[in-house]
């Protein structure tokens, strides 16, 4: 079996078989990222296609083949951010009712929800919230990095995250998940 570094090298030479193998290796992971950052599966597919084209067009710039996993993930995230900037910049989150919940009201039955159900909650977040929530909570970026990536201040990133979580809790409430026990 060809290892990942050899695969990357072959892709850098635009070898079509290597591109196909590379695609099959990363297609699931990258679609997973796309699904988190978008509202609908259609948008996810758009970003997914665009990201893969970018990856193959720019893979020759990748110097450390060992870091390809992080690099492709980062490429997808940046593609999603660009998509979000291009198409959704005018959306203002004025429909958000600021219902502050107590930090003690953690949902305790999250474990019972499937990934798809949780994903639906994330998808329903306003775009700015969804971006910050994904970047900070799941992909591990700091608020400073998020501010730079999104072109906002660090504090804006923090407030966006806060409101994202509050909105998630609000959405979870009708599902009966109103408290969460720390373990």
């Amino acid at each position: 079996m060809v290892n990942e570094q050899e695969l990357v090298k072959a892709c850098q030479n635009n070898d079509r078989k290597a591109q196909t193998a590379f695609y099959n290796l990363y297609k699931g992971k990258l679609m997973g990222v796309c699904r988190r950052y978008t509202r609908t599966p259609d948008e996810a597919e758009d970003i997914y296609q665009e990201a893969f084209v970018k990856i193959f067009n720019n893979i020759h710039t990748l110097e450390k083949a060992g870091a390809v996993g992080a690099w492709v993930r980062k490429t997808v995230i940046h593609t999603a951010i660009n998509y979000y900037h291009a198409n959704l910049k005018f959306q203002q989150n004025t429909d958000y009712e600021n219902t502050l919940l107590s930090n003690d009201d953690y949902p305790n039955l999250l474990a019972n929800l499937s990934n798809e159900e949780l994903l639906t909650l994330i998808n329903q977040l306003p775009d700015g919230y969804r971006m910050v929530f994904n970047l900070y909570v799941i992909d591990g970026y700091s608020h400073a990095e998020i501010g730079q990536m999104l072109g906002v201040s660090e504090n804006t990133s923090k407030s966006q995250l806060s409101r994202a979580k509050e909105l998630l809790r609000k959405q979870l409430k009708p599902m009966g998940i109103i408290s969460y026990e720390r373990t």
């Binding site: 030479n13 635009n14 070898d15 079509r16 591109q19 196909t20 695609y23 297609k27 699931g28 992971k29 679609m31 997973g32 990222v33 796309c34 699904r35 988190r36 996810a44 597919e45 997914y48 296609q49 893969f52 084209v53 193959f56 067009n57 999250l110 474990a111 990934n115 949780l118 994903l119 994330i122 929530f133 909570v137 799941i138």
Partner: peptide, 28 residues
């Protein structure tokens, strides 16, 4: 909860997507 669930979350893409991507790829 979300971090653990989605850090390595994978989703199987439509198999036809590759057919759309492939023609856009650089050729040797």
């Amino acid at each position: 909860v979300f971090r653990n669930r989605f850090a390595d979350f994978e989703s199987e893409p439509d198999f036809q997507l590759w057919n759309k991507i492939e023609p856009q790829l650089p050729v040797k």
